[in-house]
Design a protein around this nucleic acid. Structure first.
Lengths: 222, 222
DNA sequence: TCTTCGATGATCAGGATTCGCATAGGATTG
DNA sequence: CAATCCTATGCGAATCCTGATCATCGAAGA
């Protein structure tokens, strides 16, 4: 499980990082709103911990923009403020929960777990034509027949489905699925797209994964 | 600025309409979800205010369908409910903000302004008559029918639209789209303009892309 | 005002180029 | 050692550009 912490005070940041890493979460951090926003947009996190007061771009702004980008990762605000007004404001900006400082680490852990719990609203199953993808159990079915995918194949398919109906640029794919953030000049994506199409049994007539020449790929209903 | 209000209670509806018209917004209204949806799909609004509870088609459904049609107009939910669950649910359906009743008119105005703020999230959608261009996802629609463009065709169209209403000189086009910074002596632009007009289905009467003889081209509403 | 003519843009066809597909095989990981 | 991941390569097709020809516009002169 990957957690992004956006917090400017180094003390709190390190405290959180250590504690969460001990709980075997994978932690990334950002010390200001702009960096944090970029990371949240570029990577797929499971939870974002977001400080209310940040230099540059405020926490609420960051939150709002993450939501505007269509990213549904649970966001928990960390804040010293403690008024009803602010709570409402934060939640309206798209946050899922709200913890006031000082908080106990136990409480934070608990709230993170609540967000990670596959609650009703969260979509954990994607469909694409006859194909059903269960993110949580990491299984893929076609006509109730299971299809075994490798890690990377699954990651690629998941990314395409999370952006279903939108064109996924190669750079975005390589960033999100392969975690490569510099110039890439490889044909890996093609290889895996090919392998996906083969395993999923997609044909020319059933091209649920279409290629956009010069740009990338798109998963969509026909 | 045009605002669409979808709300079934006449009291609230009139209250909103009056207030917003006093602020010199142009207001259209719908009293149920189905009418509202149709209007949202037919016209280009800058903001949609959407009641959560509607007779016939619920607010969430309307929201979802507006997004499904590829329309990115900001949507603000008006609702009596006030739980975290609902907030998340509404935002997942594609809404941009969420106000709980009773709300102060001041607050609503403020939130509308936030949504109208142009630089937030960068403008990624252009319209030209019946044509909608989504820069981010690299897609072009005419009457919600997708039109497949090649890399260069898309680049040219994007450039024209970023300068919509302004004449684009050939040298500027060749610089921006083809990255050629010296003297050009080719007819590529003409070829691609031709191909664009053909693919977009533009006729003599519907010349959203006009030729300025001796200078260049211009994309504009007729 | 009309005609003519040169220049500019439109259209088309074809060859050059780029890009993605498929496959094989080597590298890596566990 | 086996599954997975990545690189390399040749092939075929989509795309891009060029150049030639046809249509159109607009200005100059009758």
């Amino acid at each position: 499980m990957r957690i992004l912490i956006i917090e400017d005070e180094p003390g709190i940041l390190n405290f959180l990082r250590q504690g969460l890493e001990e709980e075997s979460y994978s932690v990334d951090t950002a010390a200001n709103g702009l960096d944090g926003l970029e990371m949240a947009l570029a990577e797929a996190y499971d939870v974002v911990l977001l400080d209310w007061m940040l230099p540059g771009k405020s926490g609420v702004e960051v939150c709002r923009e993450i939501r505007r980008a269509g990213i549904k990762t649970p966001i928990i605000f960390l804040t010293a403020r403690d008024t009803v007004q602010d709570t409402v404001f934060g939640l309206q900006a798209g946050a899922n929960d709200y913890i006031k400082k000082p908080f106990s680490f136990e409480e934070l852990l608990e709230r993170i777990k609540v967000q990670l719990r596959p609650h009703s609203g969260e979509q954990i199953e994607f469909r694409l034509g006859p194909i059903v993808v269960d993110i949580q159990s990491h299984q893929v079915f076609r006509d109730s027949q299971e299809i075994k995918l490798t890690q990377k194949e699954f990651g690629l398919l998941e990314f395409l489905l999370r952006n279903k109906g939108k064109v996924c640029r190669r750079t975005r794919i390589i960033e999100s699925v392969w975690d490569i953030h510099f110039e890439y000049n490889t044909g890996v994506i093609d290889v895996y797209i090919n392998s996906l199409r083969k395993k999923l049994g997609l044909t020319k007539e059933e091209d649920y994964i279409q290629t956009i020449r010069g740009v990338g790929y798109i998963a969509k209903e026909i």
